[in-house]
């Protein structure tokens, strides 16, 4: 809804520049097929690992993901050695035993490293824009993974007559259609270890899978437990109802 409203406002504002644009423009978020859809859906490990590669090589240059831990990567199928190596590739600022600023290599128990020490540094390096944290991005936008996919594949040239502000990029689904993030993904941007051709759509789909995992690391356990809980409750309801019938059998209305 928020996107729709943004779109409506943006369309009204842009109405004088683009009279053809309807005031109630509806932005379609086409539903993609996700491995984690449905009651029994699980995360496609290979897709999530490719998504992590996209995050590591592209997104993490500007975006933090501070709620997640390196150890979470176990859930997308990486082993402890791989995780330790990935974590060790970042340096964590600490206060040393001598009281002076020092550094240590990252550990699996560390949060994902943030590219900037604070919000001001992030803004200063990004033309005044603050790249949002990605930890719960999947839950923080209407449409979830479909929105992430549509945004990452939604960069295009502005339609004729659309007035762009300085330093902004046109995006089909971003509220108001002007975003400060330059098009982050282009075909062949990363070289996948498993040989999957890295089209923009492929990378967007993979990284959306990974970000859904980071936002909902408990999902597979939650669904497994849910199936058991509901099966149990349905049985219990049946038994309880049978007992109720028996208890009430002699009562005449």
């Amino acid at each position: 809804m928020r996107i729709l409203r943004f779109a409506a406002v943006a369309a009204l504002v842009g109405a004088f520049a683009l009279p053809a644009m309807a005031a109630d423009e509806v932005i379609e978020l086409p539903h993609q097929k996700w491995s984690f859809d449905g009651v029994f859906g699980t995360y496609d490990r290979a897709a999530a690992q490719r998504g992590f590669q996209v995050y590591k090589e592209v997104c993490s240059a500007c975006h933090s993901m501070k709620e997640g831990y390196y150890r979470d990567l176990k859930g997308i199928g990486l082993d402890e050695k791989q995780i330790a190596a990935i974590a060790a590739s970042v340096t964590i600022p600490i206060i040393g035993d001598d009281g002076q600023p020092a550094e240590r290599p990252g550990l699996p128990a560390d949060h994902f490293h943030s590219p900037f020490p604070n919000d001001n540094a992030a803004r200063a390096a990004n033309n005044g824009a603050l790249p949002p944290d990605l930890s719960v991005m999947e839950k923080a936008r209407v449409g979830g993974p479909d929105y992430i996919y549509a945004l990452l594949t939604g960069f295009a040239d502005p339609p004729a007559g659309f007035k762009m502000s300085d330093g902004m990029y046109y995006n089909k689904v971003f509220p108001g259609h002007q975003i400060k993030m330059p098009k982050p993904l282009s075909d062949g941007q990363v070289t996948y270890a498993d040989g999957t051709p890295a089209s923009t759509e492929q990378m967007a789909h993979d990284v959306a899978t990974f970000l859904t995992y980071v936002a909902n690391p408990e999902m597979e356990q939650r669904k497994r437990l849910g199936v058991k809980a509901i099966l149990f409750l349905v049985l219990l309801t049946g038994v309880t109802y049978a007992v109720k019938r028996k208890v009430w059998a002699n009562v005449h209305h």
């Binding site: 669904k223 849910g226 349905v234 309880t240 109802y241 109720k244 009430w248």
Partner: peptide, 23 residues
């Protein structure tokens, strides 16, 4: 009579609750 009738309702209520929480 009503402890058992309420129990039936509680079971159905818990199913709805569980669908929300887990799915």
């Amino acid at each position: 009579y009503y402890t058992i009738k309420d129990s039936v309702g509680i079971c159905v209520y818990l199913i709805v609750f569980a669908v929300l929480v887990f799915f």
